[in-house]
Design a binder for these strands. Sequence first.
DNA 1: CTCAAATGTCATGAT
DNA 2: GAATCATGACATTTG
Length: 762
Amino acid sequence: MLSLKKYFTEGLIQFTILLSLIGVRVDVDTYLNSHLPPLREIFLGQSSAYTQTQFHNLRNTLDGYVIHPKSVDLDYYFTARRLLNQVRALDRFQVPTTEVSAWLVHRDSEGSVSGAQPSTGIALENGGGLQDGTVPDNVVRESGAEQGFGEDLEDLGAVAPPMNGDLTKEDIDLIDILWKQDIDLGAGREIFDYSHRQKENEVDKELSNGEECGDGWRSRGDDIADRALLVDGETGESFPVQVPGVEDQTALSLEECLRLLEATFPFGENSEFPAADAPSLTEALSNESGPSVVSEGLLSPLLTEPELPFDLEQQWQDLMSIMETQGMEVNNMATAEALYSSTSGDILAANYSLAPSTPINQNVSLHQASLSSCTQDFPSLFSSEIESPSASGSSALLQLVPDNSTGFNTTFGSTNLSGIFFPPQLNSTTNETSPPELPDPLGGLLDEAMLDEISLMDLAIEEGFNSVQASRLEEEFDSDSGLSLDSSHSPASLSSSEASSSSTSSSFSEEGAVGYNSDSENVDFEDVEGAVGYQPEYSKFCRMSYQNPTQLQYLPYLEHVGHNHTYNMAPRTLDADEPQPASLGKKSAKDKQTEYLDKQMSRDEHRARAMKIPFPNEKIINLPVEEFNELLSKYQLSEAQLSLIRDIRRRGKNKMAAQNCRKRKLDTILNLERDVEDLQRDKSKLLREKVEFLRSIRQMKQKVQSLYQEVFGRLRDENGQPYSPNQYVLQYASDGSVILIPRSLADQQGRRQERKQKDRRK
DNA sequence: CTCAAATGTCATGAT
DNA sequence: GAATCATGACATTTG
């Protein structure tokens, strides 16, 4: 248990950081009655820390202990810390999964707060770009909305541990001491960490360019997790945000901290602050309106250009707008917990361990939750399209949509341009399901396609896709839901593990989703031996083929070799008839050899020897009929001997026949297995092609939609007023021209077409 | 000793 | 019709 004093000290530091985060530029010195050196320097220093939080700082406090800021070992500690930071910066991609989870929780909370449920009819009134909250991949970075929210969260998350009451003189003295310690080092943290931050910035820039969304995820996680820490402006030392409800953390609440903040700095009176009518932080947090929409402020592109000077006012407005519109329906504590749930004690507890591989159950669950929301959010494939046109000219589009409409559903008629691109069966469910709302003609299509994809997924999972491959397939769908259709990688694979994602990708794309042994292996066996299959069967086959006397019987020099294991009569008799001189002197050895050979002899050989058959069983069995008869005619044999010889020949031939038969049977089985593999490979290939087709279809849908909206939005009636998408719809005429017809008429036509299609099917 | 796989044997039908 | 082969069924051996 750390001392309360330490908490308080940290709280002060966090408090100052909070001030810097929200852009306070108040002359604190006056407030502090000139007890302290200008705190603004501290703030500004912290502000630089705010510009770009550094991932490795997250781990700085994950070492399992926190050095007290007043420790005499601080100097050594900071030096070691700096070096350690550099080392750790090397593995910045080994992001603890908790960070990803943190982002996910954040996303969920957003979803719950915003009420933006994944559905085909995502309300447009939420504002363009809102839907990206349901698509946690590449969309996030591109829209910048998530980023904005993340920063807002960050702002909130950087709130210092709340403190009861105003600053006392002791507090001020503490600040003074800390400040002097910082001054003693003589340099700001930027100097130490500049290279790190530069790397970080580069990575972030790359991410903001919409490259790897998976990295985007991580980076987001980093951001969030990072910003859950308060960073010493000079040392880079991170302090965990003191979150209420977390054990061993400060008990001061966010609300209290905010109150303190307000009490300390009356925002409304500061010229650098937003308008005076802006609600206070506490008011905003305690504002109890139901789950509502995330405001534009929340969605405003706060995508950080870390090097740029902050638009503090803008950020403040964003923060305020969030608080205004977000409408936390719980009390401040609960709100804070909801906001911080991912970045609070869980992360701290999880990540303070130095072992990143330590399994954290909560991480897994959170991750799963995010995935599910991701995969279940197929409609977001469609909804995300909203962003593409709206990114540039969203206003015009949004004008088309009444406030209470169901978004795009209102902008398309029943029979529409989509029919040009898509087979009628896909369009069959387009309308009639929701006639009053003038459904989105493409929505049905998409639903169909989504169902198709889902069924595809099920099929894939059922029939040989392993879960990873299936998830990858899922990712392909999901990744398409974003704006950048081709450059995205789902965070799912990346968040799981680098190795798995890479391996699965190769296995899926190159070998197909076949759950068998690697094809190359089988092919190799096939090529070499002509027998397909996995190792055990192959060994069987080898054994049989090598034993097969038929393959050796006409090779005299191999005769003995070929029959040593099965038909030892010939060598045995030869040995008996022509005893080798070398073995004469050693009777024991010879006896052993004889016993051994006796054991090696088959029953027929034993019988033949007992009946004193004058020629080897091998000859009896393998000689052609004519030669065999000749051989028999040379000897005067009893009836019993002749019968035995015939039986031996019969059994011997049948034995070989049985061996051949079994070999053939095995070959047949293996060939069938290979055929199955081939078919499965073909199937997976077709599945991949299908996915590709679906992707291209989706792209075309998006294009059609945007074109439709563009055209429709430009149409004006006689009075120069735009046509209402509720009443009119664009439709292709039979001659190929595009006409504007009343929606009711289009609905009728759509029904007729459906009937026709149903009749055709019947 | 038990068991499963491998192998051998027989009966039967086909060639 | 004999010889041979193929194969299912059963027996025996093997590991």
